[in-house]
Nucleic acid binder design. Structure first.
Length: 190
DNA sequence: CCCTGATTCGC
DNA sequence: GCGAATCAGG
C-alpha cells in the first residue's frame, strides 16, 4: 500500500482527531502503526493541534554540527528527603455512581456542572458489568479492572476484572465513568 | 503484558 | 519517502 492522497487525508484527519497511530493503521489497513507514525512525522504534524506548547523536548537546535550518537545523559540526582508520607488519607475519588452524598449540613447545592456522568458512559458500564469477570480481591492483577461492584459487606461483591486499558486501574468502560476529565469527546466508529 | 508515540537507519 | 526495529514511557 502506498500513501495516496486519500490515505494521507484520512491519516491527517484521524491524527488531528486524536486517534492513536494503531487505530489509524487499523482503519487504513495495509500499514502498521509504525508506518503511520513515520508518515505523521514526515508530514510534520507530529504536534497534534498545536495546543500544546511542547515544553522542552526535541532540539533546541543551536545549529550545532556536533553529532550525537548516544552518549547517555547524566544520572539524575534525586533529592530524597528520607521520609515522605504525610498523606493521612487520600480521597476515594471514585464514589459510586448514583450514591449522592448529602452532607447533612445546610442546603448545599451540588456542583452545578460537575454532574452528569455521561449517560453514554453509564450505559456502557451497566452493559460491561454483565460481562465482567467478577473476580475477587485476591485475583486482582495489574491488568484487571479494579472497579468494585456490590456491597463489600456482602457475598455479592466482586471486581470487574476485565482487562484494563493502559496504565489505568480500570477497564475502558469504568475509566469512562471514574474520570470525567473534560470534553467527553470519544467517538467510536467502526 | 498491554499500549502509546519518537527515533533511527537500511532500504 | 518508507517503515521495521528499536527506544522510552504509561
Amino acid at each position: 500500500m502506498s500513501w495516496t492522497d486519500e490515505r494521507v487525508e484520512l491519516l491527517t484527519k484521524m491524527w488531528s482527531e486524536g486517534q492513536s497511530a494503531s487505530q489509524i493503521a487499523k482503519e487504513l489497513g495495509g500499514v502498521t502503526r509504525n508506518a503511520v507514525i513515520g508518515k505523521v512525522h514526515r508530514l510534520g504534524l507530529s504536534n497534534r493541534a498545536g495546543a500544546t506548547p511542547a515544553p522542552a523536548k526535541t532540539e533546541p537546535k543551536p545549529a550545532a554540527p556536533a553529532a550525537k550518537p548516544k552518549p547517555v545523559p547524566e544520572a539524575e540526582a534525586k533529592p530524597k528527603p528520607a521520609v515522605e508520607a504525610p498523606a493521612p488519607e487520600t480521597r476515594p475519588v471514585v464514589s459510586h455512581i448514583r450514591k449522592a452524598i448529602i452532607p447533612a449540613g445546610q442546603p448545599l447545592p451540588p456542583q452545578p456542572s460537575a454532574n452528569e456522568i455521561s449517560p453514554e458512559a453509564l450505559a456502557k458500564v451497566s452493559e460491561i458489568e454483565k460481562k465482567a469477570k467478577k473476580i475477587s480481591l485476591m485475583e486482582l492483577t495489574e491488568r484487571t479492572c479494579k472497579w468494585p461492584v456490590g456491597d463489600p459487606a456482602t457475598d455479592n461483591f466482586w471486581f470487574c476484572g476485565l482487562p484494563v486499558q493502559a496504565g489505568k486501574p480500570y477497564c475502558e468502560a469504568h475509566v469512562g465513568v471514574a474520570f470525567q476529565p473534560m470534553s467527553s469527546r470519544r467517538d467510536r466508529k467502526r
